[in-house]
Write a protein that binds this DNA or RNA. Structure first.
Length: 869
RNA sequence: GCGGCUGUGGCGGAAUUGGUAGACGCGCUGGAUUUAGGUUCCAGUGGCCUGCGCCGUGGGGGUUCGAGUCCCUCCAGCCGCACCA
């Protein structure tokens, strides 16, 4: 395929060129790829969207970044896979069903169809033959199959776990559905309730997940730090305190055994068996424990709630001193984490300190601070390491030495043992919801779970459901849950819980490699494409999704389905898309938010914002600050309107130019206008150039304005290449192209030599812009290079080193660190010459005349600093 | 509460390895073209003085010939916290 001979229309009309260019990509299957061992592969993946209805600007940003990287890599000659699909299960589909009576499947399919159209209109180079929707049985059947494998290996298990329960709606609530302790629809006070749920044993891989972070040298350091903290590996001591007047002992875990002699209290969860035991004869305590259950299970809620407690009337014996220690129930200790009990050391733990202050418990100092450290136990706990005091035979030991001495003692005397503990908890994958992948398990008469056998998969989620009832419709559907045990006619009951949607998003990257595979989960193609070379998505996924996906990949590896250890080689976390907010406050205090599209902003003659008015009534509204685009603040910008008004290239250019990809992007209508203006200017320069007829090739001397311009062309290639491939700073890449364009457009030379340089410059701009604004780049390139390959097949431009040669350089002269002159020096000038010329400069002498030169610092080719005293 | 991040003109941002602060764009001011402009083009645009000077990167302190960049400390805002995706 070659470019036709063409000129450019006078006017840039994206609505005409973009569909035509996209049609060529479709007709020639430009982005459909296959494994090719002869070429270097590049797998570029953006986090697939939840089909919520319409694309939002966050999607546009995410997918433009991915497309820019993909197209750049294509131009580098790599075999590039860039697929797209749908994270199609989830809660919003159920909400739509409840609110509007639309079946979740229908709602989801319609959303997918609309959003697919939007993605195509934006010109993203996806291989659509690999499209996946996770709600397809062809997809989730393999997840069900794999769950069976994990069950066989003992990597999944069932146990009781606590959920948020809405007693009016009789349903389990997600944390985000609990607002101020109440259900978001019913308004009922939420209770904690324990129900049996499925877990995947991610803690069995905790060490590997932690250690392999060191291999991910192309991941952002903050993401790795967050994962390390999330896994939270700690070395500590599991201790047993014998109960007084009761049988048994109270087990706790501590990372600070050096503070063992400072224990003045034990705190247990309200759900702890000991608290339950003590509640039996103590109505006040029973009431307190019941009250503790009236709270969301969300960690942020638990940790920020007021610290409350009540004594159980039960004591334990200190294993070293024999002292009597009271046991308290406390609302900040969670049953689901560790042993559900902690030892309280008020002097050396801030939370314990506050708890002790609130309840009049003693504060016993056992760690003395090192010299120079602050320690005021009247004000706060001392939480640093130090030297032991008030600890009998352990006095004088450092915290580190005491850790070992006390651990040895505990192990000798049998009241404790060393233990590695993780903050990471096993992955709870059960959801009491309808719109998800059915958990492929049946229960016999005895209630024991049995995995579905492969021949009975998929366990299909029924499409026709009734949302009139309470909770998940599956629990009311006998036709779904009545079944038989595999391979028999014995009646059995099917599991009605579904999987956490993070399950589906944990292996879609691998499935994209062989999306059409009918008789297996993955095949050898996954090993050609995996790992993903570049993964792109929001920073909000830094821990959960990215940790689950890493874990799942290791599970797939250990099942022999993939060979690599990690799924994502390089990670880019993009920032949020934000916009200004506007509101009015009613007398009741209620805020009404207005869309930026409906508001006019007033400015003074310097452009400062002085206020804003609602266009509809001309009355003022308050400016609320820049926040993440959201429905609740009504500050979203619909990309669809922008695409219709400006075309895909302008939207893509703006989102890449406005901010670096990993920082937040602040929306600006007028800056979009600016992006459109730039493309019109580029188009017009190319049009005017081509209208002058064919270019006669000419040799350009390195000296002179045309040589300088050629140098700028090639400096721009070097700068943009580095920005796009290494730095991922598309905003500065675009700025560099704009600078080059400004230089080219001010060239007033229609001689053969001048036109030859302009031709080269315009070709380079077409190529450099091709990943970002592929439609205009394709049309311009075709007009500039008739008979050549289309821009999608053209290589990335290379730097002509001979064009870069300079004869002179600028050197800044400072006196005491302040700039006083700029010198033009020959490139090969030595330090002595630079220093001599700097000191000879007239303006420099004005500032050196009154003192003596004490020192001269010379940074080669850049700067001279003269220190005068 | 815990973990992570970010603070630079009127605004978005640039300054890549401690070396010219404010690239590029928006906005604004003035001018030109046009029947008209929400078009296009030209010039100016950190602040204070309007001289070649001084000040200036959230606040305060420090290291250095030199700090937006490194160290200490304080403040403000944002993201995540396990059933939103």
């Amino acid at each position: 395929m070659t470019n036709p001979t063409a000129t450019l229309d006078e006017r840039y009309d994206p609505s005409a060129i973009e569909p035509a260019v996209q049609q060529r990509w479709r007709d020639e299957k430009v982005f459909e790829v296959r494994e090719d061992p002869a070429r270097e592969k590049f797998y570029c993946l953006s986090m697939f969207p939840y089909p919520s209805g319409r694309l939002h600007m966050g999607h546009v940003r995410n997918y433009t970044i991915g497309d820019v990287i993909s197209r750049y890599q294509r131009m580098q000659g790599r075999n590039v896979l860039q697929p797209m699909g749908w994270d199609a299960f989830g809660l919003p589909a159920e909400n739509a069903a409840i609110e509007r009576g639309v079946p979740p499947a229908k709602w989801t399919r319609e959303n997918i169809a609309y959003m697919r159209g939007q993605l195509q209109r934006l010109g993203f180079g996806y291989d659509w033959t690999r499209e996946i929707a996770t709600c397809d049985a062809d997809y989730y059947r393999w997840e069900q199959w794999f769950f069976g494998q994990l069950l066989e290996k003992g990597l999944v298990y069932k146990k009781q776990a606590t959920v948020n329960w809405d007693p009016i709606d009789q349903t389990v609530l997600a944390n985000e559905q609990v607002i101020d302790g109440r259900g978001w629809r019913s308004g009922a006070l939420v209770e904690r309730r324990d129900i049996p749920q499925w877990f995947v044993r991610i803690t069995a891989y905790a060490d590997e997940l932690l250690d392999d972070l060191d291999k991910l040298d192309e991941w952002p350091e903050p993401v790795k730090t967050m994962q390390r903290n999330w896994i939270g590996r700690s070395q500590g001591l599991q201790l047993r305190f014998p109960l007084i007047d009761h049988d048994g002992e109270l087990e706790v875990y501590t990372t600070r055994p050096d503070t063992l002699l400072g224990v003045t209290c034990m705190a247990v969860s309200a759900e702890h068996p000991l608290a339950q035991l003590a509640s039996a004869g103590n109505p006040a305590l029973a009431a307190f424990c019941a009250d503790c259950r009236m709270n969301s299970v969300a960690e942020a809620v638990v940790e920020t709630a007021e610290k409350k407690g009540m004594p159980l009337g039960i004591n334990v014996r200190h294993p070293l001193t024999g002292a009597t220690i009271p046991v308290w129930a406390a609302n900040f200790v969670l049953m689901g984490y560790g042993t559900g009990a902690v030892m309280s050391v008020p002097a050396h733990d801030q939370r314990d300190y506050e708890f002790a202050q609130a309840h009049g418990l003693p504060v016993r100092q056992v760690i003395a601070p090192a010299a120079g450290e602050n320690c005021d136990l009247a004000a706060a706990a001392f939480t640093e390491y130090g030297v032991l005091i008030n600890s009998g035979e352990f006095d004088g030991l450092t915290s580190a030495a005491a850790f070992d001495a006390i651990a040895d003692r505990a192990e000798q005397q049998g009241f404790g043992s060393r233990k590695v503990q993780y903050r990471l908890r096993d992955w709870l994958v059960s959801r009491q919801r309808y719109w998800g992948c059915p958990i492929p398990v049946v229960y016999g008469e005895d209630g024991e779970p049995i995995a579905e056998t492969a021949d009975r998969l998929p366990v299909r989620l029924p499409d026709q459901v009734d949302f009139a009832g309470i909770g998940s419709p599956l629990k009311q559907m006998a036709s779904f849950y009545e079944t038989t045990l595999p391979g028999t006619a014995t009646p059995a009951r099917r599991e009605t819980d579904t999987f956490d949607t993070f399950m589906e998003s944990s292996w879609y990257a691998q499935r994209f490699c062989c999306a059409d595979l009918q008789d297996g989960m993955l095949d050898q193609r996954a090993n050609y494409w995996m790992p993903v070379d570049q993964y792109i998505g929001g920073i909000e996924h830094a821990v959960l999704h990215l940790l689950y996906a890493r874990f799942f990949h290791k599970l797939l590896r250990d099942a022999g389905l993939v060979q690599s250890d990690e799924p994502f080689k390089r990670l880019l976390t993009q920032g949020m898309v934000c916009a200004e907010t506007y509101f009015r406050r009613a007398d009741t205090g209620k805020l009404t938010w207005y869309s930026p599209a409906d508001v006019d902003v007033d400015t003074d003659d310097k452009g400062r914002v002085t206020g804003a008015r609602l266009r509809a009534d001309g009355q003022p509204v308050e400016v609320g600050g820049v926040e993440k685009m959201s429905k609740s603040k009504n500050n979203g910008v619909d990309p669809q309107h922008l695409i219709e008004r400006y075309g895909a290239d302008t939207v893509r250019l703006y989102t890449m130019a406005a901010a670096p990809p990993d920082q937040r992007l602040e929306w600006s209508d007028s800056a979009v206008e600016g992006a459109a203006r730039f493309l019109r200017r580029v188009w017009r320069l190319a049009h005017d150039h081509l209208a002058r007829g064919p270019v006669i090739a000419a040799t350009i001397p390195a000296d002179g304005p045309l040589g300088d311009l050629r140098r700028r062309i090639h400096e721009t290639i070097a700068k943009v290449s580095d920005d796009v491939s290494r730095r991922y700073k598309f905003n500065t890449a675009i700025a560099a192209v704009m600078e080059l364009f400004n230089a080219l457009s001010s060239l007033d030379d229609t001689s053969p030599a001048g036109r030859s340089v302009l031709q080269e410059g315009l070709e380079v701009i077409s190529l450099l812009l091709a990943p970002i604004t592929p439609h205009i780049a394709e049309v311009m390139w075709a007009a500039l290079r008739p008979g050549d390959k289309p821009v999608t097949e053209a290589g990335w431009p290379t730097v002509d080193e001979t064009a870069l040669t300079r004869t002179s350089i600028e050197v800044v002269v400072q006196v005491n660190g302040k700039k006083r002159a700029v010198l033009q020096l020959p490139v090969d000038a030595d330090a002595a010459t630079a220093q001599r010329l700097a000191l000879a400069d007239e303006n420099v002498q004005r500032f050196t005349a009154d003192g003596t030169v004490r020192k001269v610092v010379y940074v080669k080719g850049k700067l001279v600093n003269i220190v005068v005293g």
